[in-house]
């Protein structure tokens, strides 16, 4: 990936991320966060994580942010009133963020293992096609022979072969979450106990 694209998408991610905290209007914040997540998805794709990038757009920008906008508009939240933000909180937050960023920068400055480019750690479809677990799956083998990275297929293979139980646990979590939302959203009728 050309360098300028990385800087462009990093700037989109961080710039709109900053706008989330600066905007007074919650709708502006939500839309900025959606754009920030699109930039982040582009960064994922630049790291050859095509599946995760698409999931990021589908789940976060598509579902989560729509849910946020839906709630903001449902509750009809107005802009924060003219009253100024708590000065101590603002100073504390900014100092915390600056210190954390400087700390990350300082650590990365001496992190020699991190000074590698994607070219130095190039993916190799030829080497990958000789792997035992990959050799059993024909579609993956075909993609590797054609020189393309079968990202979603490898993802599926990893999830179902190594993390099958975890996948079911996540499914159960989503079910419990759905039931919880229904219970929480139920309007209590007077004189009747909740649930």
């Amino acid at each position: 990936m050309p360098s300028f694209l990385f800087y462009l998408f990093a700037a989109i991610t961080l710039g709109f991320g900053l706008n989330v905290i600066l905007a007074r209007n919650p709708v502006t914040s939500a839309l900025s966060l959606a754009v920030s997540f699109v930039g982040l998805a582009a960064l994922f794709i630049s790291l050859d994580a095509y599946f995760i990038g698409i999931i990021q757009i589908l789940v976060y920008t598509g579902a989560v942010m729509v849910l946020f906008l839906f709630i903001i508009m449902l509750l009809d939240i107005q802009k924060e009133e003219a009253k100024r933000a708590n000065t101590a909180a603002v100073i504390g937050g900014v100092v915390l963020a600056v210190v954390l960023t400087l700390q990350v920068a300082a650590v990365l400055g001496v992190f020699k293992e991190g000074a590698v480019t994607t070219e130095q750690r190039a993916l190799s479809m030829e080497v990958a096609s000789k792997r035992e677990d990959v050799a059993q799956v024909k579609t993956i083998q075909k993609d590797l022979a054609a020189g393309t990275l079968p990202d979603a297929k490898l993802m599926g293979m990893t999830l179902f072969e190594q993390y099958g139980f975890h996948l079911q646990a996540i499914g159960l979590l989503l079910l419990v979450g759905t039931v919880g939302v229904v219970v929480l959203s139920k309007r209590e009728s007077p004189g009747k106990p909740v649930v």
Partner: peptide, 22 residues
């Protein structure tokens, strides 16, 4: 390099943290 991505990650985390506090 990897460090570029890690820095973006750290900066994004710091932004989120600042937002939670502010």
């Amino acid at each position: 390099t990897l460090n570029h991505y890690l820095f973006v990650s750290g900066a994004l985390f710091a932004l989120g943290l600042a937002g939670v506090v502010v």
